[in-house]
Design a protein around this nucleic acid. Structure first.
Lengths: 248, 248
DNA sequence: CGAGCGTTTGAAATCGGTCAACAGCAGTGG
DNA sequence: CCACTGCTGTTGACCGATTTCAAACGCTCG
């Protein structure tokens, strides 16, 4: 299935509730109008559709309007690593800027929509609007930080710690978007979670069962409720920070 | 030990052989001059010195002039993950742009020097010189791609595959800088390699011994010679790509 | 209602981790 | 010049977390 391009004059950045997560952070009304005129096109994706694929020539980067996507990085021998799950307001396609080709596949986990940001035009606008330029740099940098945290998880944490911090990370990001931090729907399969965390799907399943028995979570299919968020936090190695904070 | 700031009017970007890896890519003579006037300060580091530390306020990003550094990301419980080893021409400190604080420690693996790029002034210049802006975006994006490859390694490869691709990655990067791709000095300990690859130092040591017995490498202390680069490549999962390429 | 996928659970196998001893080399100071 | 000390690296033996293989279960959707 190929993505379907749509052009709705409605649905502008200026009225988008996701502006706070996306490019328009810190812009004046007049500046946001200029972004509006840049981002005229949107792409609708059905579950399983690719927003872009490894090797495609980059012409645009994307902002997620609604829905969720995964990005995955494939090895020629067929193995692949899911490098991220992405929520509304996040930017996609940034890894393609380096050599004008997307380095990963971006696949919709559910019906989704993305705003198309023509990259050439965007760069031009970013030179004219300092706070847009700065916001873009911040976005790229935060992406790096996110990846580094992910590296820490894969390199230094045990399976149960990885899963716990995964659940809490999702909780934070959903909360920031106004959803419940303690109860949400996982849009990805156990296998996809496992790929993201560098463990097998069976291990993910076993850990969910274990967490559930320990009273940390309730899980039914892909619907999850975090019961004891402090308990989960203690598993992640971040607990000592909280502990310190509580004592100061 | 704290880094020592130096200010040498010599040693300009315009004459730096690393320009091809660094910011000045694709700039005119006149444009490089403007970078020269921006990058007036350099920092000398002795082995073990920190260029910056997690939590320091960001005022500059850095270009490595000579030497090598590691970046590491720490958990409050003391565990830490080395997220990268960095060679001359590469930029450091980019992860601090997101919220104006460096997210990692950057530590010199040997006596090194870094060029200081005041970030505010740099952003201003980048708005005025399109190809500088574009080069900076490319650098950030390639950093993302590098991290994604690292994630693939930690998430999907077995220990021996990780080490093999680590050795080949270094080989490539050294070759690009004019050094021998098949023989080089490892500036980091077995423990640091292990941290980077998400395995224990004993495993690194055993694998070096195994590779050596198999005739893939020769290693004495930290001096390594890659004997059978194809053999190493076959371990990484990338072999099939080469194979395909050879048949087309 | 049946097919097919996703998920759970069990049992066996294994890769890599942990613990421990030792070797090698570098720097220090007598 | 040679102990002495300490750090880094190597190697062995054992252990255990996670993987692998296998079977059964239960949604979901045609």
């Amino acid at each position: 299935m190929n993505p379907i391009a749509t052009s709705k004059p409605a649905n502008k950045c200026s009225t988008c509730v996701l502006g706070q997560f996306c490019l328009p952070v810190g812009l004046s009304v007049e500046e946001v109008d200029r972004i509006d005129s840049l981002v005229t096109e949107r792409v609708r994706l059905k579950k399983g559709d690719a927003l872009y694929r490894q090797g495609d020539t980059l012409s645009a980067v994307y902002g997620i309007k609604f829905g969720s996507l995964k990005t995955e990085y494939a090895l020629p021998d067929g193995r692949e690593q899911i490098t991220g799950f992405h929520l509304p307001g996040e930017m996609l396609g940034l890894d393609g800027i380096g050599n004008n080709q997307y380095q990963s596949n971006a696949i919709a986990l559910e019906d989704s929509e993305a705003c198309v940001v023509k990259f050439n035009e965007f760069e031009t606008l970013a030179r004219q609007i300092p706070s847009l330029q700065q916001q873009f740099h911040r976005i790229l940098s935060k992406e790096l930080t996110q990846d580094q945290r992910h590296l820490l998880s894969l390199g230094s944490l045990r399976a149960e710690e990885r899963l716990a911090s995964f659940l809490l990370n999702f909780s934070d990001r959903l909360a920031a978007r106004g959803y419940s931090p303690s109860e949400y729907h996982l849009r990805m399969s156990r296998e996809e979670i496992g790929s993201y965390l560098g463990i097998q799907l069976e291990t993910v399943s076993r850990l969910f069962s274990r967490f559930s028995e320990s009273g940390l979570i309730q899980i039914k299919q892909r619907h999850i409720k975090l019961i004891d968020m402090n308990g989960l936090l203690e598993l992640t190695g971040k607990s000592s920070a909280i502990h310190c904070a509580a004592h100061t």
